[in-house]
């Protein structure tokens, strides 16, 4: 296992992304180690979301490639990339608002089990006991058992975030991508989310997190990369980043 700990799960190699004349990402190299939480921070417009969208296949890089466990992600579609083990949490929780909490989680579990299209109409949802149990268990783990039959659209933002995380984790992903998981949250929700993330981290999950809130970053990250103007300008442990003059400047808008 000691050797496995140094495994690179996600490798972003020399990725460029330009929109017309605008270089959103340039020369981005990033290696995410197994079991580590890798934070990507940077001022607004630094290219953080673009980078995430390149990883999940929403955007194709102009140059360079993204590799997961030695397999090329670049050029694949979002659903294929998810099937390869990349789960994503969005800035505003993307759930199925008209459906119940249980249904939300079950859909995710079916997606993982069945992979591609399946016309399974002879099974009723009730007869899928494995999936039911699995879904109920994770819902309880995430403290949503009281809301299990509620329409997920009626949940609070904090609960929606939990639900989305549960939907990602029931798929037992290889890599979990978090896009500002505490954006728009109250202080209380933020601190419970930090606890939740720490718990997820303790299971050995490999995580890439984009975050504005430095408190969150320094609470959970093992490694931090600072993105500014589409380039990685610093990389290191949270302590190193906190002490870096270069990073402070970038946040004040004086970089480059």
């Amino acid at each position: 296992m000691a050797e496995a700990a140094k495994n690179i799960v996600l490798h972003i190699a020399d990725v460029h992304k330009s929109f017309g004349g605008l270089h959103a990402l340039a020369d981005v190299d990033l290696a995410v180690e197994e079991g580590k939480t890798h934070a990507i921070i940077g001022p607004n417009g630094a290219g953080k979301s673009t980078l995430l969208n390149v990883i999940v296949g929403k955007l194709e890089p102009t140059r360079g490639k993204v590799v997961l466990d030695g397999e090329l992600l670049t050029g694949k579609k979002p659903h294929e990339i998810n099937q390869m083990g990349v789960a994503r949490v969005f800035q505003t929780p993307e759930i199925f608002p008209e459906l119940s909490v249980l249904d939300n989680v079950m859909i995710s579990a079916f997606a993982k089990r069945d992979g591609a299209f399946k016309l399974n109409i002879m099974n009723s949802l009730e007869s899928e006991t494995d999936i039911q149990e699995k879904a109920r268990k994770i819902i309880i783990d995430f403290g949503l058992d009281k809301q299990i039959n509620e329409h997920s659209g009626a949940l609070s933002r904090g609960h929606k975030r939990r639900l989305e995380l549960a939907m990602c984790l029931i798929q037992e992903p290889r890599l979990l991508l978090l896009d500002e998981p505490t954006a728009g949250m109250s202080r209380h929700d933020t601190s419970t989310t930090i606890d939740l993330l720490k718990e997820i981290k303790s299971t050995g999950m490999t995580i890439v997190i984009i975050e504005h809130d430095m408190h969150v970053v320094f609470s959970v990250a093992d490694k931090v990369s600072v993105l500014a103007g589409g380039r990685i300008i610093a990389e290191g442990s949270p302590e190193e980043i906190r002490a870096s003059e270069k990073v402070k400047k970038a946040y004040l808008g004086e970089a480059q």
Partner: peptide
């Protein structure tokens, strides 16, 4: 039903 509700989430759920 998931398609009606949120296709984006569906795609990102594989």
């Amino acid at each position: 039903r998931a398609i009606k509700s949120n296709q984006q989430r569906m795609n990102y759920s594989g």
